[in-house]
Write a protein that binds this DNA or RNA. Structure first.
Lengths: 100, 100
DNA sequence: GTAATAGTGAAGTGATTGCTTGACTATTCC
DNA sequence: GGAATAGTCAAGCAATCACTTCACTATTAC
């Protein structure tokens, strides 16, 4: 669940659409595929990436797999981006202090 | 400077390394290329993507181009991820309330 | 002026990737 | 039992992508 894996996973528009859909609630594979206009096979491939990065979790009950968001995965990416931004902004702050 | 463009840009390990380097301070193109072990041409191509997404800004003085981080671009991606996560977490909270 | 430095542009290449089809394996419903 | 449903696996394909080399244009240094 490294930030690198998560950002790799979020670097694709279809996977972002899946994440957006899952943020509104758990979902089956075919329910994810339908609004995207792609096959369930394609969704399965994206899910493998999303699960591998820790952004999504799923479990199969009977013949349907239910997918849900894994907030900790998203949080890892948020921290990476936030850290870069804050590092830079603190530099800006120090520069501001120097100018005062 | 849409979140989609920023996440597309951050979906590549080399571009993330460039962002990490720039978070420690402004940098020339060749100074970015050296630790990465790639050509300045390759860095220039990545910079075009990063600038197009609003994560990086640069200006050319004389013959050297100085690149710096643009915090607003990173913030846009943070907001997108945070929004997905919070939407889902608030659902979890409501579920918790129901169970009480 | 000449030489070295910093970067840009065009073209090519090999690898990756997002997606499809077709065949197959459970599971549920009648 | 048989038919429909939900998903998985293996191959294959077209497009994108990250990177290179080579040629070229400023700018700076001697």
């Amino acid at each position: 669940m490294s930030a690198a894996q998560v950002l790799d996973a979020l670097g694709d528009p279809t996977r972002r659409a899946i994440v957006e859909q899952l943020s509104r609630g758990p979902c089956s594979v075919s329910a994810l595929a339908e609004p995207l206009g792609i096959t369930v096979t394609a969704v399965g491939q994206h899910l493998r990436v999303l699960e591998g990065s820790g952004v999504v979790a799923s479990e199969k009950l009977g013949r349907t797999r239910t997918c849900r968001l894994e907030p900790a995965g998203l949080a890892a990416a948020e921290r990476w981006i936030g850290n870069c931004r804050l590092l830079w902004e603190s530099r800006l702050d120090r520069l501001g202090d120097l100018l005062d």
